[in-house]
């Protein structure tokens, strides 16, 4: 059995939900125009992932297998709605920026995948660790892509202008095609490092 540290770190590197498992692609592409949005989305997803993993882990022995998936979806949807309402109340600008992709956290395959693939088979403690690891991995990936796109597409990081006023931002990276291209190239770069350091 893997140690808890391994359980935690696998989500960040070895089984990073974005760069390795290619999960949750829709929010990753859609909201990473700025690093802030990416980070916010990551945290929101992590919250839902953590909460739903906890609940799923609790009820894992009660739910009959046939209604497993609908039941999990219901759990996830509940937390997503909570997130939606909380964000709307306290961070309205972020809520507006993330838009439809907050409710769409429900169908983020990463969350469903962890509930179905991990939390239902593991104890509460392990499920929490797993959710934290995966959530941080996901947030990290979103933030990295957000930084890249914001830096090139707007010349700033987390809203702070760092490229100077003479920099003409490459608007491509603020546009939908740029999201695809940036993520594709980032994936290739990560592949390179994963291969170089022997991470499978």
């Amino acid at each position: 059995m893997t140690t808890l540290t391994q359980e935690f770190s696998k989500g960040i590197i070895k089984q990073n939900p974005v760069f390795v498992q290619l999960l949750g692609m829709c929010p990753i592409l859609a909201v990473t125009i700025t690093a802030t949005n990416g980070f916010g989305m990551g945290i929101a997803s992590m919250f839902v992932l953590l909460s739903s993993n906890i609940v799923v882990s609790f009820i894992r022995n009660v739910v009959p297998p046939r209604v497993r998936i609908p039941a999990y979806i219901l759990v996830i949807a509940t937390f997503v709605t909570i997130t939606d309402l909380v964000l709307n109340a306290f961070l309205p600008s972020l809520h507006a920026a993330l838009g439809i992709f907050i409710p769409l956290i429900v169908v983020n395959c990463m969350i469903m995948g962890r509930a179905e693939g991990f939390a239902r088979k593991n104890t509460l403690g392990r499920s929490v660790i797993d959710a934290l690891g995966m959530g941080i991995g996901f947030t990290l990936a979103l933030t990295i892509l957000g930084i890249v796109r914001e830096l090139l597409g707007a010349g700033s990081i987390f809203g702070a202008n760092i490229m100077g006023s003479s920099f003409e931002p490459m608007a491509l990276f603020a546009s939908p095609p740029g999201a695809f291209i940036a993520l594709g190239i980032l994936l290739a770069i990560f592949n390179y490092f994963y291969r170089k350091f022997g991470v499978q």
Binding site: P177, A179, F180, I181, G184, L187
Partner: peptide
């Protein structure tokens, strides 16, 4: 190159496709 195979090249292709749909 194996680095690009699969998702990476598909994403970039999608990006260029997205460009042309603009």
């Amino acid at each position: 190159s194996g680095l690009l195979q699969g998702a990476a090249v598909t994403l970039v292709t999608a990006g260029i496709l997205s460009l042309s749909f603009m």
